[in-house]
Every structure is written in structure tokens, then in C-alpha cells.
């Protein structure tokens, strides 16, 4: 089992969290504060390029060069434990880190670019970062604190049935040694949700299926994209799931933004809402839905869960 840190953490900002569900970032900060996880954010950190990489617009070399720049920032502020909010940032950074450590030609070319641009301080030396022990998903940092989370008073949400969507770029890209638990049936989200005393659907047909965003497919091939999302929604409907918990803003966007579109297409109604695992835990701990959790940027209304929260106050479960 990999060693998960709780200090010297750089929360790695994500373009889709920032622009679609900023409440994921504020909820993560809220939880880290409550759990005594020491972290910083840095305004200089750039986008990982991930969406562009999978739109086939970014080449691996340019993506790796920008990763080296972001690694240099984390090194300079002595917060070398990177916690991503997005599964694609997680996969992109791990790959870039491995290339920088192992491929001398690429590393030398990137370092030469830094030298020629008077950015010598950005130069990367082999072993500066280790993809295994320095790059994490924020959900893993939380999972490592499951025992502490259990102790924090929470609102009783046991009348909601929960399922997870673990995000392909978290569990399938660097699947060999990096995914916590069984990559064929990841349980990080369920184990975190269970701290709130809720019932979780630990396996459902299509649990491992992609959200359907497919990067370019959502935009250039919408029907194909939505047919995959529909597979998963129908399976969740069969299991009477109330809340689908996420760990990737791209997947969350696919389900939350397009669920009403698919409902119209299939002439059905999904009684299903979408939250990131950090948003869910923050809500359960009594965080303000609008000032911390950011429910105002969601498309599928969260009325049911907000009603429940308004009626109750946090207690030790």
C-alpha cells in the first residue's frame, strides 16, 4: 500500500473544477482544514493541458514541459506532494513525471528550453519527483484520513442510497501499482461515503464504464457520447441510486450537465444527483451549501439533499 502524505501538499488546481464546479476546490480545502492536512495553492500553477492532450491538440513533449514547470513551482515552495482534484490531471502528471525521470533526451531538451529562456531555476533533475510517492488524487488524501473523518460529527444522510463513479483516469491509466484497492472494483469513494453511515451500492452493472465524455466525443460526436452516459444512468436507475459520487470534474460535468438532455431523449426521469466526494463529505459535516460546497453551479437540482440538511444538525454517527 502506498504511503499517503498529510502535509507539504500542493492542491493542484483543475481547469474544469475552476470553471464548472469550483465548490470541489473549496470543499477540499474545508475538509483538509478540518482534518489538519497541511496544504497550499499557487496562483502560478498552470493547467495540466489534459483536455487539450486528449483533444489530440497537445503533443506529449509540450505537455511534459508544462508539467516540469509546475513541478518546479511545487519544489520551490517546498510542497512537493501534489494532490489533484481531477483524474486527468492525476494521470497526466504521473506520466510526465515518469518521462522526466526516465527519458534523458526529453528531459535535456526541456531543461535546455528553460536555460535558453532564462528560467534556469525550472530545470528538472532525475528523481526530483516520484510519480508514486509525490502525486496523488485529493480523494486519496481524504481516504487516508477515513478514521479521523469517522470521528467528525455529521448530518444523518442514511436515507440516501449512494453509488460511485471512480473516474477512468484515476483507476485505469496507471492501474498497475497506483490504484488503491482493486482497480476492477475501486472502493475509495464507497469507503469514504460509509463514514457518513449511508448505504452504498458497491457494485452495479457498468460501474467501470466511462462517463461518456470521451474528451472530443462530447463535443464532436454528441450522440455517441450520450449513448454511453445513458448506459450508466440506466444501470444506476435500476439500482435505485439517489446520489452518484464523483472524483473527476469532467465526469461530474458529463452526468450533471447532460442528465436532463438524456432524460428528454429517453423519455424517462432519473432521480439522481451528482456530487464530488469532497462536496458530499463537506455537506455531511454541515458546510454551507453555497459558500463552501458550491451547489449553485450544479445543473441537476440538489433540493432533496439540501432539504434533509436544513432539517438536521451534525451528530456523531
Amino acid at each position: 500500500m502506498k504511503k499517503i502524505p498529510d502535509k507539504d501538499i500542493l492542491i493542484f488546481k483543475s481547469c474544469l473544477v475552476s470553471g464548472e464546479y469550483p465548490g470541489v476546490e473549496s470543499s477540499t480545502k474545508y475538509l483538509f482544514d478540518k482534518l489538519g492536512v497541511e496544504y497550499v495553492l499557487d496562483e502560478r500553477q498552470s493547467c495540466c493541458t489534459g483536455l487539450g492532450y486528449y483533444f489530440d491538440l497537445f503533443d506529449q513533449f509540450s505537455t511534459t514541459a508544462l508539467a516540469a514547470r509546475n513541478f518546479a513551482i511545487a519544489r520551490e515552495i517546498e510542497h512537493k506532494n501534489i494532490a489533484t482534484l481531477c483524474a486527468t490531471c492525476y494521470a497526466i502528471l504521473k506520466k510526465a513525471c515518469n518521462i522526466l525521470n526516465e527519458n534523458d533526451t526529453v528531459r535535456n531538451r526541456i531543461n535546455q528550453i528553460f536555460k535558453d529562456s532564462k528560467m534556469d531555476h525550472m530545470e528538472y533533475s532525475p528523481g526530483d519527483f516520484d510519480s508514486h510517492s509525490n502525486i496523488f488524487h485529493a480523494a486519496e488524501i481524504l481516504w487516508n484520513k477515513t478514521a479521523e473523518i469517522k470521528e467528525i460529527p455529521k448530518i444523518d444522510l442514511s436515507n440516501f442510497k449512494i453509488a460511485s463513479h471512480h473516474a477512468c483516469h484515476y483507476c485505469k491509466v496507471h492501474y498497475k501499482e497506483e490504484t488503491i484497492g482493486n482497480m476492477r472494483n475501486p472502493m475509495i469513494i464507497e469507503e469514504l461515503a460509509k463514514t457518513c453511515g449511508v448505504e452504498t451500492v458497491d457494485w452495479y452493472d457498468h460501474k467501470r464504464t466511462t462517463c461518456g465524455a470521451g474528451f472530443r466525443q462530447r463535443f464532436a460526436n454528441l450522440d455517441l457520447s450520450l449513448s454511453v452516459t445513458a448506459d450508466k444512468l440506466l444501470s444506476l436507475q435500476e439500482n435505485d441510486v439517489d446520489i452518484l459520487l464523483h472524483m473527476c470534474p469532467n465526469c461530474q460535468m458529463q452526468f450533471d450537465r447532460y442528465q436532463p438532455v438524456i432524460e428528454k431523449k429517453l423519455n424517462t426521469k432519473f432521480d439522481l444527483v451528482h456530487l464530488n466526494i469532497a462536496q458530499f463529505l463537506a455537506l455531511a459535516m454541515g458546510a454551507d451549501p453555497y459558500k463552501v460546497v458550491g451547489v449553485q453551479t450544479h445543473t441537476v437540482p440538489l433540493d432533496n439533499i439540501l432539504e434533509r440538511i436544513n432539517q438536521a444538525s451534525p451528530v456523531v454517527i
Binding site: P22, E43, I113, D116, S117, K291
Partner: peptide, 28 residues
């Protein structure tokens, strides 16, 4: 909304976008 959530600016400082431009020019 971001301000209400206590979050920082969406975009990078000018010096940093300039650096990124320089890097990406040289990567091709």
C-alpha cells in the same frame, strides 16, 4: 461565485502566462 467560495483568480498572473508562451513557442 468563486469569490463567495473564497477562491483565488481563475487565470494566471501576466508574468506566468508570458513564461508559458515562451516555453510553448520553444516546444513547437
Amino acid at each position: 461565485i468563486r469569490e463567495e467560495l473564497g477562491l483565488g483568480k481563475l487565470t494566471l498572473p501576466d508574468d506566468d502566462t508570458r513564461d508559458i508562451k515562451i516555453i510553448l513557442e520553444k516546444t513547437g
